[in-house]
Design a binder for these strands. Sequence first.
DNA 1: CTGTTAGCGCTTTCAC
DNA 2: GTGAAAGCGCTAACAG
Lengths: 320, 320
Amino acid sequence: VAEETRARVERAMEKLGYLPDVVASNLASNRTRMIAAIVTSYGSALVREFLQSLADTVHPAGFLLLLGATGTSDPRAEEQLIRAFLARRPDAMVVSQINHSSDTRRLLRRSGIPVVEVGGLADDPIDMTVGFSNQEATRQLILHLVQRGYRRIATLSETIADNDRAKLRRLGYMEALHEAGLSHRADLVEAPLNIADAADAFAALMRRSPEIDAVFCSDDLLALGALAECRRRRWNVPKRVAIAGLGDLEFAVAAVPALTTVRIYRTAMGRRTGAVLLQALQGERPQQPQQPVDFEIMSRASARPRPNPTHQPAATCLPG
Amino acid sequence: VAEETRARVERAMEKLGYLPDVVASNLASNRTRMIAAIVTSYGSALVREFLQSLADTVHPAGFLLLLGATGTSDPRAEEQLIRAFLARRPDAMVVSQINHSSDTRRLLRRSGIPVVEVGGLADDPIDMTVGFSNQEATRQLILHLVQRGYRRIATLSETIADNDRAKLRRLGYMEALHEAGLSHRADLVEAPLNIADAADAFAALMRRSPEIDAVFCSDDLLALGALAECRRRRWNVPKRVAIAGLGDLEFAVAAVPALTTVRIYRTAMGRRTGAVLLQALQGERPQQPQQPVDFEIMSRASARPRPNPTHQPAATCLPG
DNA sequence: CTGTTAGCGCTTTCAC
DNA sequence: GTGAAAGCGCTAACAG
């Protein structure tokens, strides 16, 4: 086309405020350039760094994120939402859960679009999976506690029902104890994922089993609750009891004492997810359906080494 | 239709995995049932509660959220993103910034869809606005500090350039000081919105002006950085210096000492935004384009009353 | 390379 | 009420 004509058309477009109708384009081309992402909650730790880096990765290629949150970990709610999303014909899909109903799995398989399950490293992924092994991360953290001299390690877990992630973390805990030759402790207490409930659950746990010398919290938010309760009781952490979390929220390092936890490279997860998705959208299947992402034990003050662990029994304190 | 036929068709739909093509439906009906939400960052405090309650409000009415993050507060980046979103013909739009380029404003006005600007209470909204007055919230917080006996109040602000929210908070600070008959202090230091940079900026501020007796942080995250620096220096908060934030993150109450801040009812903001949007989508204009949402001063340990403030000069301490 | 045309899968309208 | 047909605004395929 002549340069001058092109310029005139563009000026007209500008003047009239014309925006190409992507809806029509979608129908005609059978592509929407939308990536649907379904997370359990908009507030989950995943959102902050993961979605940002996923969006930053796919946006230059012209893809937008259609975001949904199930709000619960109920697989039926997830299925409903996935159905609604699939009806909008996204070019690819990201789901953050690892426990799906078989209907959901069939739905996603049938859709024919690339799907990545993110967060955990699913054994038998629907299509692809990007994440870290919850079990292995927990195992290493517990072994880290054992190595620091802790022996009576209990668990404060997020609600386990319908939550495979929590189940896998529990498994890693059991595995590590077994490996260290420590007897498995029945001291498991569950709490919803917020500071106040975690504090209460922690208090109940310590009331029941005052001899506990370390508590593994299956999420940093729970650990913050446990720390708050210790502070209320004027307990010395880690002398009275060590606390460890999992997730490395930004606030973990600012906690008092700074929280020993597992850092998860969520930004890397987002980039990787975006990369395998873009690759799959160009028709290349990735070599590996399972894409592991690093994690790292962050050793901080809340689980400093315990002096003479084997010879000295756990200190006992009157609660309150 | 006959009941039996209906059932047979539905069974067939189920069996074939038929999902109605919403893309085609969109084109034909000229409605997408998508609400586009553009935030500055997926990790902003807005995301956690606001988007969840917005989604929960509009989802039962069949609307899904198309989410975008500008990543920066650059108005040009926002304009680009808004253009891309508008091309997808959302039925309504939510934008979280309050400073928009005039092109952006024109773009949104022309689109003819309901638009709500959320977070601050815009003076001259494009269409509607839901939020609280940043200036008024800051003013009340500063007056609260004055009432508790603090006189030499400085500001640790998130980067102010291109950020109307930060500017308005600064204005509220100035207004309160003027009202209290206190001289305006030039002690303003800026930092990017993260704990580490905030700690450094706070340290620089206190080095420069050791006589400061309270620091207003324009965001809770900055306040956590300031608290971390105080702890590192073994300063007593609030004896050496009081710290106050704005935003009431979940972690504010778990901070040590617990953080005095302003609670913002983000869940209410989400619900209200969803409600006015649904109303507008049914053709009813709301009576008020500006929908204020409550805030509340949370008085906690980091700014406990100062003893004999008027007679006693600010304590001086050697830093380090 | 340019211009034309069929058709994407629905909704809506209008005739029956 | 039910059924047929037009058309939403593009893309893609194909003829010139």
